[in-house]
């Protein structure tokens, strides 16, 4: 079982968290541009083997949203970013 660092609660079990996918630029950066930019927003995800920055939520805990970095090849979790 992995332990994940919630910026509010500290180290908690992975099962309390929800991963909301890779960090993307905000929707506003795509929506008013071309159709291609919008399609890019809809379809493309950073499907990378290696270290990926993601949004996570301490869903079954305090509800805090934060970013962390995780290695998609090993599931190892790097230090989270606490100021989001």
């Amino acid at each position: 079982m992995l332990l994940i660092h919630c910026p509010w609660c500290g180290l908690r079990a992975e099962t309390e968290f929800r991963c909301a996918g890779p960090v993307k630029p905000p929707r506003s950066e795509f929506i008013d541009k071309s159709d291609e930019a919008w399609l890019e927003y809809l379809y493309q995800a950073d499907n990378r083997r290696g270290i990926l920055e993601e949004y996570w939520c301490h869903e079954k805990g305090c509800g805090e949203w934060f970013k962390l970095r995780r290695d998609t090849a090993t599931h190892e979790i790097m230090d989270g970013d606490t100021d989001s």
Binding site: E14, T72, T74, H75
Partner: peptide, 13 residues
Amino acid sequence: AQQISFRKGGKFP
């Protein structure tokens, strides 16, 4: 289907 993964093992949970 939550997290992008290329791992060939599993996850305990």
